[in-house]
Design a binder for these strands. Structure first.
Lengths: 182, 182
DNA sequence: TGGTACATGTAACATGTTACATGATTAG
DNA sequence: CTAATCATGTAACATGTTACATGTACCA
């Protein structure tokens, strides 16, 4: 019953502090607001919501149109969230398959590795541009209104900048194996 | 039988390209060489080794001292590794609980959040120092010998530098909530 | 002889992923 | 009327985590 909340469930409760939402809404909001550093899938969200409803942390309101179930956080849910918050967060976990391949680069065809690097570099450049766009779109008073969203977005920007710089400093033989100039 | 390798299993095969090793050795080596961007636990390693042995991707040699089982990669294992390598790597997944708490900072006691930030900043500073130490300890010719290890280590350095810079640019109210100067 | 590091593994469980099933509503 | 989007959910499976059980070898 009073089992500890996992971070995914906790984040759902976090969003429900603002307003009641459906599972669908929560997926969308989570992907937009925390997707950068915390991924979750639809089926996870429905599973956690069902569990939390059982445990009394959320309550489904009247089913709306389209069997839409809007969940509301309960007092017990707020308590559970506060408990979760009061436990020091763990270190981050990064799982970066590209780096795994790179680490074993000796056993990987050079052209293949180069193509992976090129592809991922583009994805990161795109992401950086996206974050910078979001940052630029924020009204100036936003910084005081919600400094936390600004801070997490800025993490994304710092991170993507670092990744791009790293890509650009890789030895040329890795990114351009065919090139024999220099 | 010919089910696709997961990245964790693939990395074990990667290490076994160099020399036969026991599960214990593999855990240690993985933590040292890829732990920065790919985490794995002991029990996972033993499970994957057992599975791969069943599938003929590795073979246990004579049990040595202390029931030590040394696994060797087979030709089929090399093939499986090559197949894994030939599938384009996915995007990275970052799971950063501190940022999750920060994202919901509005619902977190300020002092608590500040203490989390302080603690994590230290951990990242330590990690950066560690990576820089490793980098400095590399002999100059290493870069040509094994540019891949250098590249992954440099990823770690870039990443930690970015994280530290981000910490240091956070608004002072977040990191120093008691401070009312300025 | 006692503690630490080595070494393998199982069990139980939690979480994450993928695929699928079902159907309502809306916009064109 | 039809395609896209909204919406909820289950099933099956893969992976990751934690805790525990068992015992050996080395070193002080």
């Amino acid at each position: 019953m009073n089992s500890e909340l996992n971070p995914t469930a906790a984040s759902l409760l976090g969003f429900l502090h603002d307003e009641p939402m459906s599972g669908w809404d929560l997926v969308a909001r989570a992907q937009q607001r925390i997707g950068e550093f915390w991924s979750l899938t639809q089926s996870q969200v429905y599973r956690e919501l069902a569990r939390m409803a059982e445990d009394g942390l959320v309550e489904a309101g009247e089913p709306g149109t389209r069997a839409r179930k809007v969940y509301e956080i309960t007092d017990e849910g707020r308590r559970a969230f506060a408990d979760w918050v009061s436990r020091p967060p763990r270190e981050e976990a990064i799982r970066f398959p590209l780096l795994l391949v790179l680490a074993f680069g000796r056993h990987v065809p050079k052209e293949m590795l180069a193509s992976y690097l090129a592809r991922h570099r583009i994805m990161h450049a795109d992401r950086l541009a996206e974050y910078q766009g979001e940052r630029a779109a924020m009204p100036p008073q936003y910084e005081e209104m919600d400094p936390y969203s600004v801070a997490t977005l800025e993490f994304g920007i710092s991170y993507e900048e670092a990744v791009l710089r790293w890509f650009d400093n890789l030895p040329k033989q890795m990114t351009d194996p065919a090139d024999r100039t220099g």
